[in-house]
Design a binder for these strands. Sequence first.
DNA 1: AATAATTCTGACCATAAGGTAAGTACTATA
DNA 2: TATAGTACTTACCTTATGGTCAGAATTATT
Lengths: 110, 110
Amino acid sequence: MKKNLKEIPVSDENCPVRKTLGLLGGKWTLLILFQINNRVIRYGDLKRAIPGISEKVLIQELNFLVKNKLVTKKSYNEIPPRVEYQLTKTGLNALPIADRLATFGLENVE
Amino acid sequence: MKKNLKEIPVSDENCPVRKTLGLLGGKWTLLILFQINNRVIRYGDLKRAIPGISEKVLIQELNFLVKNKLVTKKSYNEIPPRVEYQLTKTGLNALPIADRLATFGLENVE
DNA sequence: AATAATTCTGACCATAAGGTAAGTACTATA
DNA sequence: TATAGTACTTACCTTATGGTCAGAATTATT
């Protein structure tokens, strides 16, 4: 018979929850991934999709996500500039987290 | 036929992802909920389950979670003191988020 | 008599995260 | 000719968050 009460190991530095929080725990990080979702989206559209975020922070986060291979960036040599972002495989793997945040928010917040 | 590409609404202040992040977006919050899980756990055990967290922050977070009805607290009038914490229904609803964080961490981080 | 263990509290400080605002370079549009 | 739109960058400052450390009250243990 299966174990009903799973034992919860001590959450040291190797704890997967902790590691994920270290990577995606920023104020805006998961929201940005959620907004990109499975779209190919331009910087300006993304910015308008997240009212309140500053340009500095949005670009900062996008660079961070590109560096950590959650997002890819494609720049076209055009004037005016055009830059498109989309999730990598790893980035797509983070979407279920965002979906749970959404579900929880709908059912439990306020 | 069903919509394949779901439209993603602009994430203003009412966005459920944002609201959840506002509530559970602290550095330790989801890890604490994950550690409590479906246990009844004493403060000291919880503290030992999360190496690195300071007592001040742990208590601060627990008070916050009690205030927001994600956690209940039961104090016994004993010496030495005994205090037990456990998740409310709402707190239990947050566990799937932590589970996804764990899954993602196992499969995608490092 | 000293130490450890329990669950906190509070004062103080350091860091990092995020916000503001201005600027850049180029073009199309009015 | 002035304004708006594109995607940023940079300098500066504010705030929030979290960390350190000491102490408090009580008892059991050594």
